[in-house]
Design a protein around this nucleic acid. Structure first.
Length: 331
RNA sequence: CCGGAGGUGGCAGAGUGGCCAAUUGCAUCAGACUGUAAAUCUGACGGGAUUUCCCUACGAAGGUUCGAAUCCUUCCCUCCGGA
């Protein structure tokens, strides 16, 4: 089985920094697993640049960053799945899995270790375990019509169409128009599902090692705030202005969420800079919480608290013994 | 000092005699999530027992009333205008 390393955890915890370090030590290349880093031009707000700490170092060591067409190379280490999409066009899990799989395959072929840096739970899950429903495409025409309906109407439709489908939904999803919409889409596509079912989807058989990063919540909040200030200094607001000029509408920026969503409000004159900072800080923390809720359920993760002394040595130790295992030839 | 407005749960802000432990938004906490996932959505949210129970609460203290966040009196504080 092919060895694949995964580093996961909430935002602002230092996943990329750690991954870069590990890549150097174990001869790996990074694959970003982040739903917003895939977009070209969303650099500062998505944290493609090395974090504050490494930035300080980088000034000393002259960190070398090259931006290539679908990856960045930082100090000789490739980071894939950056800049693979146009920010004006919605990119989804399905797109991500398709491309990231290729990338992983190529890295393995080169005899290197793919290091997946995971912040987006769904993308990571899809990449690692596969998501059968991804083969069922979206129906934009259908969506256009369903989007006009109220929650109650959507609920009625799905109950009519498929009582069993309705039963399968949990309470939260039943009240979630977006999910209801996709459920209806899946039900209507049922015949199509049958026809492609035989395509079968390949089961990944990687030899996975998952490293999870945690911190006490308060510490994470501090890190988030520090990082936010640093991003402002790096030109976050200017980045927003630039995107706007390049044709990314305020509406689209809002969809992008967090820094970009708030940037849309700031540039649209809805809020002051002070409000921007305060509200954004809150939103990022809330996002981090959602990430942790998701990752909590992730199986087989070796968790490390980054505030515990030399955690990175512990991490390297674990990886080392995994790295030294002989590859079996079952694949 | 006079005139006007107002003091409500972490914040904002409804409520003007019983259906008020108190609408709502935000924050907070917990959670869901198989094609928008940095998105979207759910639940809890004074305390305690836990089927319509008790206690503490709407600036403070009294009072009216069967019953007050809601009415009256005094006091304290904030804001605006005038001296």
């Amino acid at each position: 089985m092919k060895k694949v390393l995964v580093v996961l955890g909430p935002t602002a915890i230092g996943k990329t920094d750690l991954a870069l370090k590990l890549a150097k030590k174990f001869d790996g290349e990074l694959i970003s697993c982040d739903s917003r880093q895939v977009y070209q031009g969303l650099d500062i707000g998505t944290g493609k640049m090395p974090s504050q700490n490494s930035k300080i170092k980088s000034q000393r060591y002259k960190l070398k960053v090259q931006k290539l067409k679908s990856r960045w190379v930082i100090n000789g280490i490739s980071i894939w799945m950056y800049d693979v999409a146009d920010p004006q066009v919605r990119y989804t899990v399905a797109d991500y899995v398709k491309e990231a799989e290729k990338v992983i395959g190529n890295i393995i072929k080169k005899g290197k270790i793919p290091i997946i840096v995971g912040g987006t739970g769904l993308y990571l899950k899809a990449l690692l375990e596969g998501l059968p429903n991804l083969s069922i495409p979206m129906d934009y025409q259908l969506r256009g019509e369903l989007e006009k309906l109220s929650l109650e109407e959507l609920q009625q439709i799905i109950q009519l169409l498929s009582p069993t489908g309705w039963k399968k939904l949990n309470d939260s999803d039943r009240k979630n128009p977006r999910r209801l919409l996709r459920s209806i889409e899946l039900i209507l596509m049922n015949p199509y599902i049958q026809s492609i079912k035989n395509l079968k989807f390949k089961i990944k058989n990687y030899n996975l090692l998952k490293i999870g990063l945690t911190v006490p919540r308060q510490v994470l909040k501090q890190r988030i705030n520090l990082r936010l200030i640093s991003r402002i200094n790096q030109g976050l607001i200017e980045e927003g202005e630039r995107l706007l000029k390049e044709g990314v509408t305020l509406k689209r920026m809002r969809e992008l969420g967090l820094e970009y969503g708030m940037l849309a409000e700031l540039l649209g004159g809805e809020i002051s800079q002070k409000q921007f900072l305060e509200q954004l800080s809150v939103k990022i923390s809330q996002y981090a919480k959602r990430q942790m809720t998701w990752f909590k359920k992730e199986k087989d993760v070796f968790w490390f608290d980054i505030t515990k002394g030399n955690f990175s040595q512990e991490v390297e130790k674990i990886i080392q013994s995994w790295y030294d295992q002989a590859d079996d030839k079952t694949d």
